[in-house]
Design a protein around this nucleic acid. Sequence first.
DNA 1: CGCTTACCGGTAAGCGCTTACAGAGCCAGC
DNA 2: GCTGGCTCTGTAAGCGCTTACCGGTAAGCG
Lengths: 367, 367
Amino acid sequence: MAEPKKARGTLTIYDVASRAGVSIASVSRVLNGLGSPRAETRERVMQAVRELSFVPDGAARALSNGLKEVVGVVFRRGGEELFEGEDESFLFIDVINRGIEVGARRRGFDLLISSVGFNDDNVAARISALAGKADGLILHDRMLSAVGIARLADMVPIVTLAGSPTPASLNVRCDNESGIRALVHHLVIEHGYRSLGYVTGRSDSPDNRTRLHAFETEAAAAGAEIETGPAWQGNYSAAGGANVVASLLDAGRKLPRAILCANDQTALGVIHALAQRGIHVPQDVAITGFDDVPVARHLHPPLTTIRQPMQELGAKAFDILYSRISEGGGTADTVLPVELVVRESCGCAPGSTRVSGTDLVAKDGHR
Amino acid sequence: MAEPKKARGTLTIYDVASRAGVSIASVSRVLNGLGSPRAETRERVMQAVRELSFVPDGAARALSNGLKEVVGVVFRRGGEELFEGEDESFLFIDVINRGIEVGARRRGFDLLISSVGFNDDNVAARISALAGKADGLILHDRMLSAVGIARLADMVPIVTLAGSPTPASLNVRCDNESGIRALVHHLVIEHGYRSLGYVTGRSDSPDNRTRLHAFETEAAAAGAEIETGPAWQGNYSAAGGANVVASLLDAGRKLPRAILCANDQTALGVIHALAQRGIHVPQDVAITGFDDVPVARHLHPPLTTIRQPMQELGAKAFDILYSRISEGGGTADTVLPVELVVRESCGCAPGSTRVSGTDLVAKDGHR
DNA sequence: CGCTTACCGGTAAGCGCTTACAGAGCCAGC
DNA sequence: GCTGGCTCTGTAAGCGCTTACCGGTAAGCG
């Protein structure tokens, strides 16, 4: 695939050993703090290491002890039509990745990052290749079928984010139900809006299904009228949200008093489309998001949304993966709590409040 | 460091070979499309590979052919005091990383990501460890001294971003001079502002020094009065920008008619601080940024700034690193063009324009 | 029909490191 | 003074893969 071979005048453990006048075994022991190298020996070795500025080769090390100290992270990006501001959509992902990194760092692991487009064909192959370079994989979103995951899972441990656990893989997600419930409660009970709409996310997303279902249940419980159906199908992107509004309006449909959006990106698109039609948020229609991405507070009006502990989600995912890697354990399904963040797009006056929405426990779904 | 050893019932090339009834050499040849395996043999092997869902171990492969197909990326994050909206500061970095990834993907490389805090102590050690796991490194920002880079560079090829090339490392950056020049020209010549200020970035950043210098030169050439000095020292963060404004105002200093900020984050802070004192942008003071991060267009007022081709910067950095890895070549210093993006914070009316600011060539600084 | 020429495919030698195993000193105790 | 028991260090056997080298077989030619 690529031709270079023995690119540099590679410095090996042998060089260090001979310079320090000891055997490679001793060098290895010193480097790993193992065994019982005498202080004097240790010093000689460290000196040589310093003088040569030697760094052991990760591949050799990995091959030898079966641990690469690398965790692969796969996520989707781009691929949709562009939309003004769309470039921010990856924020969500990046914050989670940062969390993974924080967790990884604690164990001396590094992140091997790979993104796939929505319509890349060789996804499974790419992920497999990644698996070969890592000790375990964390998969964002749902990017592989259950069988795909199963196949992967018998090569390396897998943790999925916002998916659902399978017999072979673990999962970490946020408490979508509580989030939607808090939103509906706020809109219906506190603001008194009687009609609600819900712009969905990608239909193949488990998060999306959960949220939609929670929306329907909760709205019914609160006694609000709801609008759903294919016309309300979004795809987590701003463009998707804008489309829904545009087609609804073009079809002459009357909008409900409040619209919940599957995520903040969607809300961004919806607000934008509404503004273009001269419809005021929140005076005419109240809007809410989900995620609380950093830009949410800069929108006009500032977005009322559900904050997911994204960074913590990532860190947790790593921890779980790590325990799977090292002891074969790991909680099958972990649910993290979310918070309602009230800003102005729901109709509240400037001056935000925050309400903790859910109490969480790591629950053990499978096994 | 970590105990697991031979975590899984590892599937090896031997398993595939025996299942297909051939030697491991043939399996390897088939997998790498090399040599001349006969169609029938190839098919038998592929069949076995599929049945076992075998994936060759990256470490073994790397060890054997001296190529890990991994590029390490190191950048700084956080560490500064928090500021509302600050969490977006990493956007810039992430877009560049995305660019690197795009370049890497073309060559079958993956990104090994590692971030360091501003006051982590063991930075050099961490980067060294990364170097051991990668074929080359791309360093954001300036995070190592010249000697640090030199030391690293004789372990693996190094490309720095927005730094300067050293005898041992390559560099890629944007055309800061042209950007500042375009900004000053726009403010002084087109808007007629006679007094300018410049809120700087971190003092140890080469980009910052270049921009400041260009600012002074250009403003003088345009015949504008300028304000500089320690009171104008920012640090690329929103908090830094806000501080500068606050202390200037607290000291009773009169602000210049237009303030250029070292980057968009800084501008965000400046605008925020100004708003708190009831000073209007751009009516009282015009503000410009640098970078054109995605949020720039969502600020109030939308920010006039310089767009850097961030993704392209990343892709370019990878390409250069790759050529260094594979052929030992690589351009020492590559300069990418920037564009002036006119929005409203400079005083222009809604309805933006864009002016290409510079024509670029990859120039060969050293060697 | 025998020998050359290709072409395949197998054998085995590493790649740089970790670690089990065993050898070499050394001290203490008898 | 010898031996048992420690501690420290060296030797060597892999880890899973790539690939140089070589032998075997089939096809081509005189």
